[in-house]
């Protein structure tokens, strides 16, 4: 299941881009699911585990992929860690849900904004009040109160 901590928290890695640049493994790019995310978000094709061919930027090293994609790859490959997913745009939301569904472990992310998870139903636990929500209408009722606060749990 996907867990979300809304608001500021010391438990999450805030600058995910720097963290990715210094911790990713080449093997992360060999994964089929990761390649689908890279194509979907950055419109880029993996050439090798050192380079991708981006529609906008041409052939670039892995450290030049978008900040949102770096965060997705961190979440996917480090299910025990918590990352600031407000570095992800709404075009990453479906991938966060898919990562959580695919993972054998519960995934926890930190959001400092209200991400739009779309019109379809989902199952997300809001850690701030330990409540499970099933759609955006339920999610925003709680999220709006928590995004400006600090999570102390």
């Amino acid at each position: 299941m996907l867990n979300i901590i809304f608001g500021e928290t010391d438990k999450a890695i805030y600058n995910t881009s720097v963290h990715f640049d210094n911790t990713y493994y080449d093997s992360w790019l060999d994964d089929k699911f990761a390649r689908q995310m890279i194509l979907s978000v950055d419109r880029a094709t993996v050439l090798s585990n050192h380079a991708v061919d981006s529609k906008a930027l041409g052939i670039i090293p892995v450290t030049k992929i978008s900040g949102g994609l770096k965060t997705l790859l961190l979440i996917y490959n480090n299910p025990d860690m918590i990352f600031n997913a407000s570095t992800c745009g709404d075009n990453c939301a479906k991938w966060i849900l898919r990562i959580a569904k695919k993972s054998e472990k519960d995934i926890t992310i930190n959001l400092r904004h209200i991400m739009d998870f779309g019109d379809k139903s989902f199952e997300i636990r809001i850690k701030n009040n330990d409540t499970i929500v099933h759609n955006m209408a339920e999610l925003v009722q709680y999220a709006g109160y928590f995004i400006g606060e600090k999570y102390e749990g």
Partner: peptide, 26 residues
């Protein structure tokens, strides 16, 4: 050679957000 941005700032604080991979960091 590859990219061109044209933006206008109108007051003291401008916020950039939106989808990932649109070129904010670039």
């Amino acid at each position: 050679r590859r990219l061109r941005y044209k933006i206008t700032v109108n007051r003291n604080i401008t916020i950039l957000r939106g989808n990932s991979a649109t070129g904010k960091t670039t």
